[in-house]
Design a protein around this nucleic acid. Structure first.
Lengths: 184, 184
DNA sequence: TGAATCATGTAAAAAGTTACATGATTCG
DNA sequence: CGAATCATGTAACTTTTTACATGATTCA
């Protein structure tokens, strides 16, 4: 079976939900997958075209009164097979997060103590916002899709986001403490 | 001041340490920054060339008896300024880790329970290995650079890696439990 | 009317990976 | 001698981002 890239599989996966147009795919990712996946229109539209070319989905124009027309993409059986096949493949490798903050901190010796502290404080603030976003998404999933077969899995990924973000927050606190002690 | 990309800054930063050639930069990143940064030779060598072009470093050939010659890159004062300036810039945005496992889990509904479990078990195993690697690196930093000004900061980043990895491991355990309950 | 949102797309540039080529030295 | 390590590099390719262009509809 041909291999596609993860962006293609992500879109294929989303096409199993109610989001079936380029615009709504973007929205879906920004709202629901934001903690571990992001994507731009520059990837979405060409990939959708490619997916149709490969016979993994079919397009039809859907007109909603009072809204601009949109292209609705529906998976073919081949598309569903390709998705399932990918899901069954074992993990390729552990993801490595490129973390700009850690990179700067790594060279912290070349910076003033003050700047290092504010770098981490700023990071902490952003992490707190992110954590709150996760809580909000979690709540909205539980409110609106309580019996949805997908919901269980969506909540698993959110739990992951919450746990790792919390760990990062605790690290911020601990590291700030250490930096204050060092300052004395 | 001109802006460069993070890869350039990462290399600039490493050139402040004892690693001053393309080959040793690669080794350094693989050994010490591996948990939040990775890089290929295909990036390193062209970037080094570019760094010299921009006047941020100077090359000289260094001959070690019994070893192939190597190009030794040393930062110029402009290079050090550029590095310091970057360190002082506030964080651009929170990094988003693209996590293939979470992406698959998100579409877990389309997969057998068994496969989902083994996906997570496999992930857990890899995370355990990673955790042990961090502990080993930490130990070697404490053994070999106990008074190094850099060491404190290097240990901070490792602590981050350990904490978030541990949180991910706990998530694996918790999620596996939930999946077993669901199976009954 | 004008801003916000809905909707689709492309072109160019930037960033990153992979595969290859080359050659010296070391060590078992 | 042959494998491993040290060392430098490039070319082709893939992936992703950014910036732009276009136009409909909604609502204050």
């Amino acid at each position: 079976m041909t291999n596609y890239n993860d962006t293609t599989y992500a879109i294929l996966g989303i096409l199993t939900t109610d989001c079936k147009s380029g615009y709504s795919i973007k929205q879906f990712i920004d709202r629901s997958l934001n903690h571990f996946w992001k994507i731009s229109y520059g990837q979405i539209y060409p990939t959708l075209k490619f997916i149709v070319q490969e016979g993994l989905a079919e397009v039809q124009i859907s007109s909603n009164p009072g809204k601009p027309d949109k292209n609705e993409y529906n998976l073919t059986s081949k598309g569903r097979d390709v998705l399932k096949n990918w899901l069954e493949q074992p993990m390729k490798q552990l993801p490595i997060e490129r973390n700009e903050i850690l990179l700067k901190l790594f060279f912290g010796r070349y910076q003033s103590h003050k700047k290092t502290v504010s770098l981490i404080q700023n990071y902490k603030q952003e992490l707190e916002k992110r954590y709150q976003t996760y809580v909000a998404i979690e709540q909205s999933i539980m409110d609106f899709n309580p019996n949805d077969d997908d919901a269980v899995y969506w909540l698993f990924t959110l739990d992951y986001g919450k746990r790792t973000t919390k760990a990062a927050l605790e690290w911020c606190e601990y590291t700030l403490d250490k930096l204050f002690i060092k300052e004395e």
